[in-house]
Design a protein around this nucleic acid. Structure first.
Ligand SMILES: Nc1nc2c(ncn2[C@H]2C[C@H](O)[C@@H](COP(=O)(O)OP(=O)(O)OP(=O)(O)O)O2)c(=O)[nH]1
Ligand SMILES: [Mg+2]
Ligand SMILES: [Mg+2]
Ligand SMILES: [Zn+2]
Length: 577
DNA sequence: GCCGTTTTCGGCCCGACTGTTTTCAGTCG
């Protein structure tokens, strides 16, 4: 696999940046950025699509020209347009745009006037006080640039995991709720869309007078810096480094503002374009008639905005401009799975291996959540670090499960095991003991760096075992910690669909594996999913909502999720083909 | 560069905040 989607997206982003610095047509620049966004949000590998000769123009924002450029890039590893523009302007200029407050115009001016091409040049010029000599720069921007360089040198800024963002948001929302005159408050942006990571927090408040809320916001104890402050919008940096935007509007604009601030940017643009087509101007204050007129025709509720452009209310998780608008228009928005749909959890550990709580405690905690069943899936022996089970210990655990089930106090415990998939694709326990289980959860914990073809074969071979049921944390990634394994996920999804294997959506906040886009591909290809917490304690059972988030972002409905079924239905759904 | 139950050409979302702007460009949401 020579060219990853990520590489293709990065090249087009670079091309867009350099063209913008050169002063190219901004809509052409936007077209390249859109293409980068589309490609970055794909589950299938573009290189595979090209190899199969598929028509790339079926993807929105990719026309004949871009399709041909992509094909060239995949086949030759080269993007001739990028090579061309790099002959005219230094490619490092694109990286300078990562500096906050520095855009294409600023970079161009610094390059033309001072010959600055990289971070080192920029720092030197700033220290020498030469930046302020350039038009549209001054003392303040010069200092700001130095500060930003400092931050950038301290390591690339990471996006924050959604679960961590919740912990940051909670006290801040609590703090703002107590501001005078706040009638409604919501964390919007990527947080509301439930993206796996967030770049910042975007908080919206409704109030007649924004003053008290804004003051309270910048006065929050964790604020390290007030980046900007106005009457309707302020931005702060928290001690953790996370930025927070607060937007304040009157209650009559709350719906329009919530729509605006929830995004995504691409979704907003698409909805606003529909507005233009229908004679409206849509902004964060409401929907207005294009001809002018001060009075909005809608704005208090989010539904009104959609209604004006002929759409039903679209769940935030879908608002990525990835087909939700067309689906809404045609009345074909998917029914999305909810936490209430789930009748059990199919991946959990106990104190027999690396879990914190007993079988009995886990069964009772599952019942307290209203579950009908809980699969106990402790590690197999290969995972020695977790004191994994051999056949004997697993059999003793099965006996204990029988006893706990007989007591009938908790949810029904299913006999399972998280069986390690060994390097050759065989499973870590003998078939005879696996045959005694209700289900297996199979996963890779070692040798995660095999080449793509081998790693894919390893998983497919594991599926050959008739006792294989669920593929757990399929990519093995840990967000901000460990890259996913090299895998042909499309092949794995297709194999799962064909052979009656189930793919897990692991709810551990660092995993979220499958990803949203993989969930969507799985649904499209007819593979079944299991939403599971991989709980290592009774509390961990409560992580389920994070798996639900990503499944919903993947357009997944209850029908594609095995643990929406009752025990009888589940056993049916887990039958192998 | 993309795209079309108005269009195959001529549009392409719309607004807040900052700084050096002397009347608004640049950057960002
Ligand atoms: N109409 C419009 N809305 C925008 C634009 N840029 C951002 N927004 C809206 C939609 C975004 O979801 C919202 C918050 O902006 P952010 O930059 O924080 O993006 P978002 O939260 O979606 O992603 P993030 O995880 O923060 O990178 O503001 C834009 O160019 N036009
Ligand atoms: Mg955001
Ligand atoms: Mg933001
Ligand atoms: Zn596990």
């Amino acid at each position: 696999m020579p060219v990853h989607n990520r590489d293709i997206a990065e090249r087009f982003t670079r091309l867009a940046n350099l063209l913008e610095i050169e002063g190219a047509n901004p809509y052409r620049v936007r077209a390249y950025r859109n293409a980068a966004r589309t490609i970055g949000g794909l589950s299938v590998d573009i290189a595979d699509l090209v190899a199969k000769g598929e028509d790339l123009t079926r993807y929105p924002g990719i026309g004949k020209d871009l399709a041909s450029k992509i094909r060239t890039l995949v086949e030759t590893g080269e993007l001739p347009d990028l090579a061309e523009v790099e002959k005219r302007v230094p490619t490092e200029l694109s990286d300078l745009m990562a500096i906050e407050g520095l855009g294409s115009r600023g970079v161009k001016a610094l390059y033309k006037r001072l010959g600055i091409t990289g971070l080192d040049d920029l720092e030197e010029a700033a220290r020498a006080g030469r930046i302020r000599e350039v038009e549209r720069f001054g003392e303040k921007s010069e200092h700001a640039i130095l500060a930003e360089i400092e931050k950038l040198r301290g390591g690339a800024p990471e996006r924050m995991r959604l679960a961590d963002a919740e912990d940051v948001a909670r006290p801040l929302v609590e703090h703002l709720t107590r501001a005078e005159g706040v009638e409604a408050i919501e964390v919007a942006g990527s947080f509301r869309r439930r993206k796996e990571t967030v770049g910042d927090l975007d908080i919206l408040v409704a109030c007649a007078d924004s003053g008290p809320a804004m003051e309270r916001f910048v006065g929050f104890e964790d604020v390290a810096e007030v980046v900007s402050q106005g009457s309707t919008r302020s931005t702060v940096r928290l001690a953790s480094g996370l930025h927070v935007d607060l937007r304040a509007v009157s209650p009559s604009s709350y719906g329009a503002a919530l729509h605006y601030f929830t995004g995504s940017q691409a979704h907003n643009i698409a909805v606003r374009r529909r507005g233009v087509e229908r004679g409206y101007k849509i902004n964060e204050y409401g929907v207005f008639l294009s001809g002018g007129g001060e009075e909005p025709v809608a704005g208090a509720r989010e539904e009104e905005v959609f209604e004006r452009v002929g759409l039903p209310w679209i769940p935030p998780e879908l608002r990525e401009d990835r087909g939700e608008i067309q689906a809404g228009e045609q009345g074909e928005l998917p029914e999305l799975v909810t936490e209430d749909d789930l009748l059990g959890d199919l991946h959990a550990h106990t104190d027999a291996t690396d879990g914190a709580d007993s079988l009995r405690a886990m069964a009772e905690a599952a019942a307290a959540r209203g579950y009908e069943y809980l699969a106990v899936t402790d590690h197999s022996k290969r995972v020695a670090m977790a004191h994994g089970l051999d056949a004997d210990r697993l059999r003793r655990q099965m006996e204990e499960i029988d006893r706990v089930n007989d007591e009938g106090k908790g949810a029904t415990l299913l006999k399972g095991c998280e069986v390690d998939i060994l390097e050759d694709g065989s499973l870590d326990l003998p078939d005879d003991v696996l045959a005694e289980l209700d289900l297996t959860v199979c996963s890779i914990h070692y040798q995660m760096n095999l080449p793509r073809e081998k790693q894919t074969e390893r998983v497919l071979r594991a599926m050959d075992n008739p006792h294989f049921r669920i593929l757990a944390h399929p990519s093995g990634r840990a967000i901000n910690e460990r890259a996913p394994m090299e895998l042909d996920m499309e092949r794995i999804i297709e194999a799962a669909a064909a052979r009656g294997c189930v793919l897990e959506v692991n709810a551990q906040p660092a995993r979220l594996d499958l990803r949203d886009v993989d969930c969507r591909l799985a649904r499209e290809r007819g593979a079944m999913l299991a939403l599971s917490t991989d709980a290592h304690s009774t509390d961990n059972l409560g992580l389920m909502r994070f798996a639900v988030d990503q499944a919903r972002r993947g357009w997944v409905g209850p029908g594609s999720v095995v643990n929406t079924r009752d025990l009888g239905g589940l056993r049916e759904a887990l039958r192998r083909r």
